[in-house]
Amino acid sequence: MVSSRPHTYSVEAVVVRASDFGEADRLVTLLTPFRGLVRAVARGARKPKSRLGGNVDLLRHIKASLAEGRSLHSVSQAESLTSLRGLHSGLEKMSTGLYMAEVAERFSVEGGPNPALFNQFVQMLQVLDEEPVNPLMARWFDMHVLRINGFLPAISDCVDCGSALEPKDHVFSPARGGLVCPECRATENDVLLPASMNTIKLLRHMARSRWDAVRPVDAGEEELRQAGRILREHMQFVLDRHVRSSAFMDEVTRWRPAGANSPSP
């Protein structure tokens, strides 16, 4: 006789998306190391006395017990694995964390295991939790999410002819996925982004280094801007969509509030 009890299982996860669902439920998207994205309903999670509520909020690193359903799974229990309370200490941290969550989600699929991506994401959330926000955090995360998924931009040699690039300013083609040498530059309708020599050095350093080695880098405003644009447009080309939370992260970082007559100090 077949049991009618739903199959339950336990996963480590980070909540990367949450929305209201039904009367008092929350629909969450969990990023897991071995099952990819899992969509699940946390029943009653919006009620103040819910046992789930706080643990199924965005950016929570949890261990969840899930019951399989026909279309959606449901969260039967959730306990916190890492506190990550520091993420709540400032708007820059929250917006950067939400940006990373969206990037991690966009590079994941339901049922597709990707433990390297998951571990990278959790590690960067922990860094963000403990350290002051550094504008290189999101860029380094972009770079390594691209690397893990096999989309690392070609920044060593010319993406077209493979020739070594001279140590000088070049351009980056998001459509071709890398830096192009002067000989390969001319192609109709190809958007080319400026990449100064220092920007290229910064990109290469981020691509081959752990966060600990990138943290002390004091990148200039222009290098940060160019590297950010290159990685963002490359990522947009790979994903075929825009990472929506980047706009809020940029606004918070620059702090030009909507509707304000004068910027705050």
Binding site: L58, G90, L91, M94, L98
Partner: peptide
Amino acid sequence: PNLEGEATAMYIQRLLSH
């Protein structure tokens, strides 16, 4: 009292700080 609510609250606080 969730992350998006907190982010909104912090944004408003900044907006009104002056």
